[in-house]
């Protein structure tokens, strides 16, 4: 009976835990301190990426798909392009008001929501750090499909690879879910932008041919998605390394500080 009560109390205690990371065999998710303005900036660059950066992958992917979908339906990128090059009349003609007025409130909301989340998460992290009894991440986990273990990763290696084909670096970071989500929009982008062929023709000097292949509506997505994926990879690598240090430090403090070093100081007396 007593055992039952104590174990129940332990359960209750565990429910109050704030973890900074969770590691399952196929993926890892972690939170770390982030500047809310930085998060808001990425939401501004591309709705959903702010959430993605904070580890809120599910809401992030919904918002990213919304952005691709409504932006295409309202021809917003084409309108932005035309406004930037000074063709305002055509821009007014081309934008679909029906969808544009769906886009605006969700765009603003996304920026505000990611800012709010970042602020609140920073506070949760403070609580997590201050609660010394927290279990942190498990350094090793395995299932029938995958093996995941916590190791330091080199941020320069990660960023280097991500310049060529950004989403593949999520394999290096062992983040399956992030990889799948990222691969969805990267696949769509590579298909609809024709960017690989356009790059090829640009490099051999046939600029006209390259320009015909590109449509501003799709190409304007590319800089944000490209830079974000590299940034995200960099952030997640740094997060992973910090997590490794925190975990190892906690293990060492818990397990290897039971002895004493008195004999170092009391040599003369002996």
């Amino acid at each position: 009976m007593l055992l039952l009560i104590t174990s129940r109390r332990n359960d209750k205690h565990n429910l109050r835990q704030r973890k900074m990371a969770t590691q399952k065999s196929c993926t890892t998710n972690a939170i770390s301190y982030k500047n809310p303005l930085l998060v808001a900036f990425w939401s501004l660059a591309f709705p959903g990426f702010g959430h993605f950066l904070l580890g809120s992958h599910l809401f992030g992917v919904v918002l990213v798909i919304f952005e691709f979908w409504i932006n295409s339906l309202s021809s917003l990128n084409t309108a932005i392009y035309l406004s930037m090059v000074g063709d305002f009349e055509l821009a007014k003609d081309i934008i679909e008001i029906k969808y544009f007025y769906v886009y605006i409130p969700l765009y603003i909301f996304t920026i505000w929501d990611s800012y709010r989340r970042a602020q609140e998460m920073n506070q949760e992290i403070q609580l997590s750090i201050l609660n010394k009894e927290n279990d942190l991440v498990t350094p090793f986990s395995m299932s029938i499909l995958e093996v995941n273990y916590l190791r330091k990763k080199n941020p320069f290696t990660a960023v280097f690879w991500s310049f060529f084909l950004p989403p593949m670096v999520y394999i290096y970071l062992h983040r399956f879910i992030t990889l799948v989500f990222s691969a969805i929009w990267w696949g769509a982008l590579l298909y609809y932008t024709n960017i690989t062929e356009a790059t090829y023709y640009s490099l051999i000097g046939e600029f006209e041919k390259s320009r015909e292949l590109l449509d501003p509506q799709w190409v304007l997505f590319l800089p944000s998605v490209y830079m974000f994926t590299i940034f995200d990879v960099h952030t997640k690598t740094m997060e992973n390394n910090k997590l490794y240090e925190i975990e190892l430090r906690k293990y060492l403090k818990d397990s290897y500080q039971n002895g004493d070093m008195d004999s170092l100081y009391f040599k003369q007396q002996r």
Binding site: A45, I80, Y81, M84, V85, I195, A198, T199, S202, F207, S210, R211, L214, P216, V219, L220, L222, P223, S224, Y226, M227, F228
Partner: peptide, 22 residues
């Protein structure tokens, strides 16, 4: 990101095209 976006947009008007300017 910001300069890449501007390069891509104005690249459509310039000789070298959006890829190189991006």
């Amino acid at each position: 990101l910001i300069l890449m976006l501007l390069g891509t947009i104005y690249g459509f008007q310039l000789t070298w095209g959006p890829v190189i300017w991006g």
